[in-house]
């Protein structure tokens, strides 16, 4: 690990003021410390945010939920309001990592969790995301767990988060503060496709600080679930995951929100998939049609072609569970 200066921020203003040059904000550390040990992240300075008052989880006036950026994954997962009104967020969080990591990892940090691509994580390997212009060793390499949607010729790295898939299906809003003041960004606009600039993963500008995430009021009467598929039974990133929220009336799906993880370069939402479900009867046939649309643009790599079928099964199963169709 390279040497760096260490600053403890006492206030948000403090943190923003210190955010000059090549510095990184540090929250739970589960991504950043890990990547610094791998020499993937080599910041000149670290600003420790952990003393900031950003850990609150509370209702918003409109009946939604405010989740402070420093709220730990464990606390959010077990928060009574989350368990009652946003159970798929709780399920997604509890399916991720381990208890220890969830006790450390923060909501804001998880939003910015970086890919598990082994080539990104190895400083000796070519990686356009880590070292722009160096190439993508994952293409033609060990890419079993990498993306089949949203990829480019420059990057096929998967967004590894479970939380962000649930937040996407829940249509969360990310609140940011920075040198240009405060902004609120729908999560659907927060992540960028790799394109030719895979090093840019979100709309955040240097010095921007995520302060909270808000959720809209829960959809009344909706069924929801988070389904995560992986090789081993626990403590593993998703090969495919699905977060779905479906409202049914008279056997017909009125409203559907679908986000996928483990298969795409960002938490994946395809409005055509939702459109294919809404107004349709909740049957396995219609779910399969939607899965077909979801994967129609899939671009498998040398080792991950099975994800096309796996993702379909994942989505069909999630919709079946959420709508109680057997």
């Amino acid at each position: 690990m390279n040497s760096f200066t260490f600053t403890r921020a006492r206030t948000i203003a403090d943190a923003l003021r210190s955010a000059r040059g090549d510095v990184k904000f540090l929250a739970g550390g589960t991504t950043l410390v890990d990547l610094m040990k791998l020499d993937v992240e080599r910041p000149a300075g670290i600003i420790d945010l952990n003393a900031l008052p950003l850990a609150e989880v509370r209702r918003t006036p409109d009946g939604g939920l405010h989740i402070g950026a420093l709220a730990r994954n464990s606390d959010v997962a077990h928060h009574p309001d989350v368990v009652r009104d946003y159970p798929l967020l709780s399920q997604a969080l509890l399916s991720g990592a381990s208890v220890q990591l969830r006790n450390m990892a923060s909501t804001g940090g998880n939003l910015l969790q970086r890919t598990r691509c082994v080539y990104f994580r190895d400083a000796a390997m070519a990686c356009n995301k880590r070292s722009p212009g160096s190439g993508c060793a994952a293409i033609g390499g060990f890419n079993r767990n990498l993306a089949i949607l949203g990829t480019s010729a420059h990057c096929i790295a998967t967004n590894p988060s479970d939380q962000n898939v649930a937040l996407t299906a829940l249509e969360a809003t990310v609140h940011v503060t920075g040198s240009n003041g405060e902004r609120s960004v729908p999560i659907g606009d927060f992540y960028l496709l790799p394109g030719q600039t895979p090093e840019r993963e979100t709309i955040l500008e240097p010095g921007d600080l995520v302060t909270s995430v808000t959720l809209p009021p829960p959809a009344p009467g909706a069924g929801s679930t988070y389904v995560k598929l992986r090789d081993r039974a626990s403590f593993e990133f998703a090969l495919a995951s699905a977060a779905v929220v479906v409202t049914i009336k008279g056997g017909v799906m009125q409203r559907a929100r679908v986000a996928m993880g483990g298969i795409a370069t960002k938490p994946w939402r395809n409005l055509d998939v939702e459109a294919a479900l809404e107004g349709q009867p909740a049957t396995r046939e219609r779910f399969a049609d939607a899965a077909q649309i979801l994967l129609s643009d899939a671009k498998p790599q040398s080792r991950n072609g099975f994800k096309v079928e796996l993702a379909k099964r994942c989505l069909v199963h999630a919709l079946s569970v959420a709508t109680a169709v057997t």
Binding site: G29, N50, Q100, L101
Partner: peptide, 15 residues
């Protein structure tokens, strides 16, 4: 009082 992975945590953050 909470269990964490001490390997992913800088000592300096535990003031």
């Amino acid at each position: 009082g909470r269990r964490v992975n001490s390997c992913l945590s800088f000592a300096a953050t535990h003031e």
